[in-house]
């Protein structure tokens, strides 16, 4: 991926700060983790016009960007307050897994991680997940 423009970097940094506040989460205690993800999001913003999550592999990024499921903040964050990119996490650096289905990989990796601010975030908790891009099977999350 290309180095992002200063404008997109600033836009993503502002978004992350505001979304942390909105959801009662924080960025990862290791600054380089956050910095990597913000660079990836900003680079996708420049390339695709959308901040596509940089912590997934997409067979076709342009097609994926037509669906909102992996546009930051992704469906998993909005429904379950889970960020596998570790951008929106608890103060101890762990992603919240409390609301994930029991068979979700996040629960298998991190175990049960409770939400310290249950009154914040999960703005799409009652909505169905976004449709995958046209031509792709409805496999859901990972």
């Amino acid at each position: 991926m290309k180095e992002p423009s200063p404008k997109s970097l600033e836009r993503m940094r502002t978004f992350v700060r505001k979304y942390n506040e909105k959801t009662g989460t924080t960025t990862h205690p290791k600054a380089e983790v956050t910095d990597s993800v913000v660079h990836g999001l900003a680079s996708h913003l420049d390339e695709l016009g959308k901040p596509l999550c940089p912590c997934n592999f997409y067979p076709d990024k342009k097609t994926e960007a037509t669906s909102r499921r992996w546009i930051c903040a992704c469906d998993e964050m909005k429904r379950w307050k889970y960020c596998h990119c570790l951008l929106f996490v608890r103060a101890d650096g762990l992603p919240i897994t409390e609301y994930l289905p029991a068979d979700h990989e996040g629960r298998q990796i991190y175990g049960l991680v409770t939400d310290p601010t249950p009154d914040k975030g999960r703005e799409s908790r009652d909505l169905p997940p976004s449709s995958p891009p046209e031509g792709e099977g409805a496999e859901g999350g990972h």
């Binding site: 983790v33 990597s36 990836g40 912590c55 951008l87």
Partner: peptide, 12 residues
């Protein structure tokens, strides 16, 4: 290890 440059968990 399947990774990408700007993936935070990959870096971790």
């Amino acid at each position: 290890d399947f990774w990408a440059e700007w993936c935070g968990p990959c870096k971790m």
